[in-house]
Nucleic acid binder design. Structure first.
Lengths: 83, 83
DNA sequence: CACGCCGCATAGCAGATGTTATATTGTCGG
DNA sequence: CCGACAATATAACATCTGCTATGCGGCGTG
C-alpha cells in the first residue's frame, strides 16, 4: 500500500526551501516551470501540487542540494548572503 | 489567442515517440508521471500540455535519446524490436 | 460462437494550474 | 508623513489534469 508520502506539510517546506535560496515566489515559480500563483497557493495551502509538480520540486531541491525533509540546509556549503 | 509556440503538432510527436519506444499510452503516461487520460488527450489534440508537462516530455525524450522534432530516432542505437 | 482481456477513444466531474487583476504589507527615499 | 516600489495574498475565469466509467475493435482461448 503505497501511501503517497507527501511531506506532511508542503507549504512550510516550500517556504523553507525558497528562503534558503533567497528566492521570491515568482523566481521559484520560474525555476520550477510553474506560475507565481501556483507557488503562492502551495505556500498558503490553497492547493496541493500535482505529481508532476511534486516531482519537479523534489528534483529542484536535489539539484540545489537542499533537503526538503529537514528544516535546514544541513550541509556546510553555505554561500549565504555575502552582501 | 495566444501565440504560444508549440511543436507544430504535439499529437503526432507524442505518438511517434511512443511508437519508437513501443509503449502503450498508459506506460508512457506512467513514465512521464501523468495519467493515461492526459497522454490520450495529447495524442488526440483535446488538450495542450502544461509547461511542466512539456518540460517533462522533452526531458524524457532526451533521456531516451529520441528527438521529438524529427520523426525518426536518427541514431543507430536502436534497441531492436525483434518481436 | 461466446467470453474475457487489452489498447484506445471519449465523456463528466472535481481539483490543480495559468492568467489577470486587485488589495495588503513592508521598505526605502523624499 | 507621503509616495513609489517590491513581495505577497487573494479572487475570478479559462484551461489542463486525475479519476472513473463507458464503448469500440482486435485477439486469443475455451
Amino acid at each position: 500500500m503505497a501511501m503517497i508520502r507527501q511531506p506532511e506539510n508542503f507549504p512550510e517546506t516550500v517556504k523553507e526551501v525558497r528562503r534558503q535560496l533567497a528566492l521570491s515566489q515568482e523566481e521559484l515559480a520560474h525555476a520550477l516551470g510553474v506560475s507565481f500563483a501556483t507557488v503562492n497557493r502551495w505556500e498558503n495551502g490553497k492547493t496541493i501540487p500535482s505529481k508532476l509538480a511534486q516531482r519537479q520540486f523534489e528534483q529542484f531541491c536535489k539539484q540545489k542540494k537542499i533537503d526538503p525533509a529537514s528544516g535546514e540546509s544541513s550541509d556546510k556549503s553555505r554561500q549565504d548572503q555575502a552582501e
